[in-house]
Amino acid sequence: MTTTPHPADPAPDGRSTRWDQHRAARRRELVDATLRAVRQHGAGVGMDDIAAVAGTSKTVIYRHFTDRQGLYAAVSESVDALILRNLVQATGAAGDDLTSADSSPRALVAGAIDAYLTLVEKDPEVYRFVVTAPLLDQSSGDPAAPVTGHIAAQMSLVIAEALARAGRDTAPAKVWGAGLVGMVRAAADQWLAGSDAMTRLELTEHLTDLAWGGLCAAWPGETR
């Protein structure tokens, strides 16, 4: 029986590829414009303000993001990537391997905490926008969960590696990573509200002291 060979896959349509690239570039431009609008008008920025800063109409924005939730998701992903990049740099790792940090374990935890607080300090309105999500229906749960979830996952990898090297069960790593991020987020929200005049470095040190009291169990031989 002779098998008829399948025809080769058709070559990509150049016009379609260029259009996809154009759409991706335009989406990035609109995300950047949204961030500028947030910084200019505050976390409670409206769609009219965003459209004005972008130099376009709300209709065009919705054409690229479907709705307000789509725009918020794109902005959130951008901020998420920034925090994760800073987190990787803070832990002294290359690429996705967060286990090769050269600094001490306590300094690694401090660096991770400071990476989160740095965004809060440098871009407070953007942070508020991501955390409070004024564009969204507030009945849909925690809008910042994807961002904090990704950060917690990265920290869990670091903790799990430390537990594994110590010959210990890595099961607590996921819970400890989530707990660390939750603690930092709650403290960051209070700090941003201006309840005290504590500096970022002071807050980082206090949170590191609190976190390290428990996390040092993952690094036997390290002092509290």
Score class of each variant (00 low, 15 high):
residue 210 L to P: 00
residue 128 R to T: 12
residue 106 R to W: 14
residue 51 A to N: 07
residue 30 L to E: 15
residue 52 A to E: 13
residue 33 A to F: 07
residue 192 L to D: 13
residue 207 L to T: 03
residue 78 S to G: 09
residue 111 G to I: 06
residue 42 G to A: 12
residue 87 L to D: 06
residue 210 L to S: 02
residue 92 G to H: 11
residue 74 A to C: 03
residue 20 D to A: 09
residue 105 P to V: 10
residue 31 V to W: 12
residue 15 R to G: 09
residue 166 A to K: 03
residue 49 D to M: 00
residue 214 G to M: 07
residue 46 G to T: 05
residue 161 E to A: 15
residue 20 D to I: 09
residue 145 A to V: 15
residue 176 W to C: 10
residue 40 Q to T: 09
residue 64 H to W: 08
residue 160 A to P: 02
residue 89 Q to C: 02
residue 168 R to Y: 13
residue 177 G to I: 02
residue 155 M to N: 15
residue 45 V to T: 12
residue 181 V to F: 01
residue 188 A to C: 13
residue 73 A to E: 15
residue 67 D to F: 00
residue 79 V to H: 10
residue 209 D to N: 00
residue 14 G to I: 09
residue 98 L to I: 13
residue 195 S to K: 03
residue 25 A to R: 13
residue 218 A to S: 07
residue 55 G to D: 03
residue 124 P to R: 06
residue 73 A to Y: 04
residue 168 R to F: 11
residue 95 G to T: 14
residue 217 A to L: 05
residue 105 P to S: 02
residue 5 P to L: 11
residue 96 D to R: 11
residue 50 I to D: 12
residue 150 H to V: 11
residue 2 T to R: 10
residue 113 I to V: 15
residue 152 A to L: 08
residue 50 I to Y: 04
residue 37 A to Q: 12
residue 159 I to V: 14
residue 157 L to E: 08
residue 108 L to R: 11
residue 39 R to G: 14
residue 160 A to S: 07
residue 112 A to S: 08
residue 197 A to F: 02
residue 106 R to D: 14
residue 125 E to P: 01
residue 17 T to I: 12
residue 153 A to R: 04
residue 185 R to G: 11
residue 159 I to H: 01
residue 79 V to N: 10
residue 28 R to L: 15
residue 196 D to G: 01
residue 171 A to Y: 04
residue 21 Q to I: 07
residue 104 S to N: 03
residue 42 G to I: 13
residue 132 T to V: 06
residue 145 A to I: 15
residue 78 S to A: 14
residue 216 C to W: 11
residue 162 A to S: 07
residue 173 A to G: 07
residue 195 S to W: 10
residue 132 T to C: 08
residue 140 S to Y: 08
residue 172 P to V: 07
residue 140 S to H: 08
residue 107 A to T: 09
residue 132 T to W: 05
residue 132 T to L: 11
residue 147 V to A: 05
residue 40 Q to W: 00
residue 58 K to E: 13
residue 44 G to Y: 04
residue 3 T to M: 11
residue 161 E to Y: 05
residue 200 R to Q: 08
residue 75 V to C: 05
residue 40 Q to V: 06
residue 116 Y to S: 06
residue 200 R to K: 04
residue 166 A to S: 10
residue 31 V to P: 10
residue 63 R to P: 00
residue 3 T to A: 13
residue 187 A to Q: 12
residue 138 Q to G: 02
residue 61 I to P: 00
residue 8 A to I: 14
residue 7 P to N: 11
residue 136 L to D: 14
residue 221 G to P: 08
